[in-house]
Structures are given as C-alpha cells and as structure tokens.
Amino acid sequence: MPIRRLVTIFAAMAVTLPTLLAAAPASAGTATRAAVVAENRVDARTLDLTVSSPAIGQQANVRLLLPDGWDGRQHGRTWPVLLLLGGCCWSDGDGHESWVQKTDIENYPELRKVLVVTPIGGKAGYFSNWHKAGGPKWEDFHLDEVLPLVEKNYGGGTKRAIAGLSMGGFGALSYAGRRPGMFSAAASYSGTVHTQLFMLGPASVQAVLIGQGLDPAALWGDPVKDAKVWAAHNPHELTDKLKNIPVYLSAGNGEPGPLDAPGAGFDVKEKAIEGMSQLVATKLLLSGGKVQTSFYGKGTHAWPYYGRELRNSLPMLLGALGV
C-alpha cells in the first residue's frame, strides 16, 4: 500500500477514534462512580437525594435532615454527620424516610447542630456486602458512596457518629467495628447485635431473609462452613474494635410497656435482643470499652422506644462529635 494512502488512513483514525471511544459503553471492568441524579426538597429541614449506585446496582434514596444554617452555608462549611440507619421489612416507602415518619426527630433541638443522613438499607440488606457473587454491596453503598457524596456536596464533615434500630442497630455496630476510625461513637436500639448466638442468631437472620423471598445463604454464606464471614460482620465478634469508641446499647424485656399500644402481647424477639445486647455490653466492659446501656425493662420491639432511646443516647453521640 502506498505510504500516502497509509498516512491518510491513520489521519482519519486519529480524528474518529476518540469520538468512537467516548461513545462506546464502558467495559465490564470499568468502575462507574456513584452520583446524585435527583434532589427533592421535602420541606425546610428535609432534602431527599436519589443516588445512582454501582455498589447495589440501582438508584436508591437518601434523606438528609438539615442543620441550622445549611441553606446559607458558605463554601467549605461543614457539620458533623449522624448516619442513622433504619430496620428491615418496611411495609410502605423504602425505608429512608422511616425515622422522620415514625418519630419526631425533626423536633429534637440537638439534631439541629448536625447533618442527619438516613439512607435506604434494603428490606433485608443487613448492611453488608453480600457473600454471593453479584449480590448487593450495602456497606460500599453507605460508606464509600453515600458518605463521600454528602461530604463533597452537602456539607457533611469527617466527624461522624452512627446509630440504628433493629437491623440498623446491627448495622451501626457492625460498620463501626469493620471500619475503625470512621465513626466516633455508635448506638444500637433493640439491635440484633449477636448474629452467631447459638442457633438463635443465625436462625433469626435466615428467617428474615426467607421471609423476604431471599436466599438465606447469599448474605454471609452457610453459618457453619462460612463462620468466619459471619464473624467478620458480627458486632459481638468486633468488640476489640468497638472498645475504642463510646457505644450505646438499649433493649426492652419483651413485656408490654408504657409506650406500647393497648393489648400488646409479649414480644419474644425483643427478649432475645435484650439478651444479645447484654452479652455484647458485658464483653465490651470486660475489654475496657466505654459502654452506656439502657435495659429499661418493659417494652417491645416498637418505634416509640427507638425514638426515645435515640434521644437518650444523643448526649453520648453528640459529645463524641464535639457538639
């Protein structure tokens, strides 16, 4: 082929190739970054974000409860972050709005000094990167996607505390233990904080997964064969990391209490959770941890207790943030 012809071909390729590459879809090995694709200002204190998440393979909602002065903030102004996790198996919405819907946290004056972040957690996501290949990566979504986005664009600071109810109580302690140094304090309100407690822990986790139509082995694998994977997420097995930060643990004893509806019966789940929480509290104390407990006696697995315990734990949580 004549040299002039080759020069013409290569010149054409130099013009067209960048355009073709830019238009081509990313390869399977190319990482796509999480991004906020929509915002909805619900009211003066509440901003909802829709995040496109590679970690969980879908768009997901995150609610921000805004601090005083947020709208008029200057560039570089930040607030400490309270990552507030919900429970499982909600019957309406998708969980990111549950704390605001079910409690009156927007009226807690203490929370006007921090940026509260309440993300979707999956109906039974268990705040984990699932063991089964191709499963959702909830830990990556919350800690490597949501928090950096909040810090980059919405005034979130690098001082953080974490708290949650039920499954979210598990998530709060699991995340704090798995990511040492990320959180200054952690709180669990009726949390399933010992997922390997005899047969009770694994059975309760797998029952939740089955109830949501999910593969019980997809989360952390088999409780026996993959015991190390279970332990790597289990707050009871993470106390060597948790002992370095203040931890708040609360639960009732399952008997109907002052905040329960009339006619409420005995709650076996809450009784089991009380036992789990007491074991974790004892292990933390024996290891020299800083633990505050609220084992308040009568009370079931219900929202009025979660809201009350959140407020009771705020002096510890916010104190750790320097607020």
Rank of each mutant, 00 (worst) to 15 (best):
G87L: 12
T195Y: 09
K159I: 05
F266I: 10
P25K: 10
G201L: 10
N61F: 05
R41P: 01
G135E: 14
V37P: 10
N61W: 08
P136N: 01
A231G: 05
V116M: 11
R311G: 09
P246F: 12
A26S: 11
M316T: 08
E139P: 00
T158I: 14
L64G: 08
Q292V: 14
L66M: 10
N244P: 05
A281W: 14
R73Q: 12
M13G: 04
V100Y: 09
N234V: 08
G157A: 08
A133I: 01
K132I: 06
P18Q: 10
M276S: 04
H301M: 08
D222E: 15
A217S: 08
E255D: 03
L21A: 14
L321G: 09
R160M: 04
M182C: 13
W230T: 12
P18E: 05
E151I: 08
D240T: 01
T293E: 02
G275W: 15
R179G: 00
V291N: 10
A227S: 06
G164M: 03
A35D: 07
G322V: 06
W130D: 09
L66Q: 13
D215C: 00
L84K: 12
A124W: 00
L165I: 13
T46H: 02
R77L: 10
Y126L: 15
D92Y: 14
K132L: 11
M1K: 14
S294W: 14
I162L: 03
D226M: 07
L149K: 06
A23N: 00
I273F: 13
P148V: 02
L314S: 14
A261Y: 03
R178F: 13
A34Y: 02
G156R: 13
L85F: 09
V205T: 12
G254T: 00
A217D: 14
Y296I: 04
R33P: 03
I56M: 07
W79D: 01
S188H: 03
L85S: 09
R308T: 08
R5L: 12
P246M: 07
R308C: 04
A186T: 00
L47G: 03
A124E: 00
L314N: 14
N107V: 02
A281V: 11
A14N: 03
V280A: 12
A24S: 15
K137Q: 13
T30H: 11
P2T: 09
G254P: 00
I210E: 07
G257N: 01
P246K: 11
R160G: 06
A14M: 05
E39G: 05
W303I: 03
R45W: 09
S166P: 11
A203E: 12
K283N: 09
P216W: 05
H233G: 09
H236R: 02
Y126K: 11
G125V: 00
W99F: 12
S91K: 15
G57H: 01
N312M: 15
V100H: 11
G135I: 10
K269L: 11
A231Y: 04
G263T: 02
W230D: 10
D140W: 02
V323A: 10
H131M: 06
G263F: 06
G191S: 03
Y108G: 02
D260N: 04
Q212S: 00
H301Y: 11
A60L: 11
V100Q: 10
P258A: 08
V51D: 05
K102I: 00
S128Q: 11
E139S: 01
A133C: 01
G72S: 07
E237V: 01
P256M: 01
G213I: 02
